[in-house]
Amino acid sequence: MSPATTRAKQPGSRRRLVIEADGGSRGNPGVAGYGALVRDPASGRVLIEMAEPLGKQSNNVAEYSGLLAGLRAVVDLDPSADVVARMDSKLVVEQMSGRWKIKHEDMRRLALEARDLCAEIGDAGGSVSFEWIPREKNKAADALSNDAMDGKSIHRVLHDVDANDAAAQADSAVSPGSQERADVVAHHKPLRLLLVQVPLVEAAVPLVVGAVLRLVGSGAEVVTCDEPLALEVARAVGAEVGAEPTVSGLWAGRAPGEDADETVRTAYRSLAARGGTVVAVTSRRGVLSVLTDVLETPGPRFWAIATAPGSLTAVEVWEDGSSAVAFTNRTEHLA
């Protein structure tokens, strides 16, 4: 995980943040999407808002995806904050609070990811609590989730102020639902993403790691799924670049369906929003989910791009949001 952007605090002070998240599915399962925002409760000001289509998913998967987006935004913004996550999904709130069991595999995977993010916030000195709110009090996140179900992908950074700055700047606040609000996007660093397809055999691991290290240096972030050889590659790369790999089910490429995995695409878009140099060790489906998103490849052509086990693929995303594929299926290190 890249270092979070934080502001210096006075001793004993603690920033407070509120996540509002929602998800929906037209058909359940059907066309799905999530919306999430991070708000400064002192001023009511929205700091970040996000929306992302999820393809065909259930309503509950969409709700969890909204929570995950909000938690990731907090980790990037200030992981030492005290956070309240507010949702109109009783199921998600009760499950994340530990009062209800999680039976469905897709939700269990997403809940574990959410708990890992909560633990990351806790390790940084922050905290996360969950609060159910009625739907009529979750209108901003609901509107964003409907934008997502309409096919819109949104990541707006509207303000980055802490609670001590909020009162002084309250006169410039804009209503969260206003259509006149400018879509002010922060100047994120470019993203340099190296996609590593999991090798088939352990003997290929040192060859893959060597090839990765010729392309990235210290300071790179490493993310991976929980496949044994993926973990082995990620840990070896992480040891060389000085980064503890972030293990996430979002990079596994195991979501239901035979084409693009929208959970992988969500993870990719989160990286694109904050930038940096990232090595992502994932499955062939994970690699193709990113490539076809960048190239806007039609669904029926999803599997038409050749990639081999242990191959390297590079994607670049610039400050203005434009993206390009630098190379695909590089395999000379395996010869």
Rank of each mutant, 00 (worst) to 15 (best):
L68G: 03
V287R: 10
V278K: 03
R301T: 07
P79M: 11
E180V: 01
D76E: 09
T292E: 04
G310E: 06
L47G: 06
L207R: 15
P176W: 03
H333E: 02
V46A: 03
N329S: 02
V325Y: 07
S89N: 07
E262A: 12
C225H: 10
V84M: 11
P199Y: 15
N164A: 13
V128K: 00
A166E: 06
L110T: 09
R15L: 14
H155Y: 14
L271E: 04
S65T: 14
G66Q: 08
A62I: 06
R115C: 07
V317E: 00
E120K: 13
D183L: 10
T282I: 01
A69Y: 09
Y64C: 10
V315A: 03
P206S: 01
A324Q: 12
G321W: 08
L112C: 05
R156P: 02
V247D: 02
M50G: 03
S289I: 09
V264Q: 01
P190H: 15
S127K: 07
A73N: 03
V128N: 04
L144T: 03
R181M: 00
C225R: 08
A170C: 04
P53M: 00
E232P: 00
Y34R: 02
M107R: 13
D150H: 13
P206E: 00
T331H: 08
I19G: 15
L193F: 01
Q197A: 14
K139W: 02
K101M: 07
E63A: 15
S289K: 08
E240L: 08
P300Q: 12
G126E: 08
P11F: 03
S13N: 14
V174M: 05
E94S: 13
A69G: 15
V161H: 10
E232N: 07
R285C: 08
K9M: 14
A81F: 06
R108I: 15
R72N: 11
T331N: 13
V196L: 05
P79Y: 07
R285T: 14
A260Q: 09
N329E: 02
E63K: 12
E136Y: 08
H188K: 15
R192A: 12
G257K: 02
R115I: 14
P41V: 00
D82T: 01
P245A: 14
A168Y: 02
W303A: 13
